[in-house]
Amino acid sequence: MRHGAGFRVVRAVLLGLFALYFFLPLISMANFSVQGKGPLEGEITFHYYAELVRNEDLRSAIVSSLLLAAFTVLLMVVLLVPTMIWVRLRTPGLSRTVEFLCLLPLTVPPLVIVVGITNVYTWVNYLLGDSPQVLVFAYVVLVLPYSYRSIDSALSAIDVTTLAEAARSLGAGWTTVITRIVMPNIVSGVLGAAFIAIALVLGEYVFASLLHYDTMPVALAAIYKSETSTAIAGAFASIVLISLLLLGLSFFNRSKAPDVGGQKA
């Protein structure tokens, strides 16, 4: 499509305005987090970032969140990948059901799940104790739709049946087929799923706050009134980390598609 000079100017101006709208809150957050307050008045300082590690409650909350992210990825991969491979190979009739179940959390608001999950968590706490790490179960449900899509597109790109039959005819068992034949071929999809899972878990507030577990977002919200600058520094650090993960994800997905023209958005 060819465009006139007038259109180009209007487009540049509008894109600039959109950029301003989207970046202004981020810039002001960065600015706020390095402006000294109180005794540090008027200085540019990284004091509040150091505070994130120095404050003991905050540090343990950050560690909790990072651990939770790791556990969520682990459990998600263990539950989802073998199931999806198995469905493709042995029970293709169930593929619609699995897809529906995986995408269901997009339709049921997380808040609704929290409201109903208290009884389940009474049992979880009874069996596994009361550490924030038990949130991993709820978080796997939360990341399921995104992980499913990522892994599903990776599986569609390879010929699972042929690979599996070849491996089986050479004497491989089902475990070997899944872990050593199919898994290495869909590693990009699994990594994509892991990235988005980490990004979602690090920012999750609904479950953690209503079930009373101190994860990073909950801790930041708790100190916001008394130590605003530290809270904002923590929030900015987390958004930078999450953005890097998600940007990494989008570049990752792109490298799979060699031709830009034929690529889905």
């Binding site: 957050m29 930041l220 900015f236 958004i239 998600l246 940007l247």
Partner: peptide
């Protein structure tokens, strides 16, 4: 498009803080 993908996931505590700081 990549940035849009990031910002669409942007929410919760961080987003509220960003607007309060603005």
């Amino acid at each position: 498009l990549s940035i849009a993908g990031v910002l669409a996931q942007f929410g919760g505590v961080t987003l509220a803080f960003a607007w309060i700081s603005l």
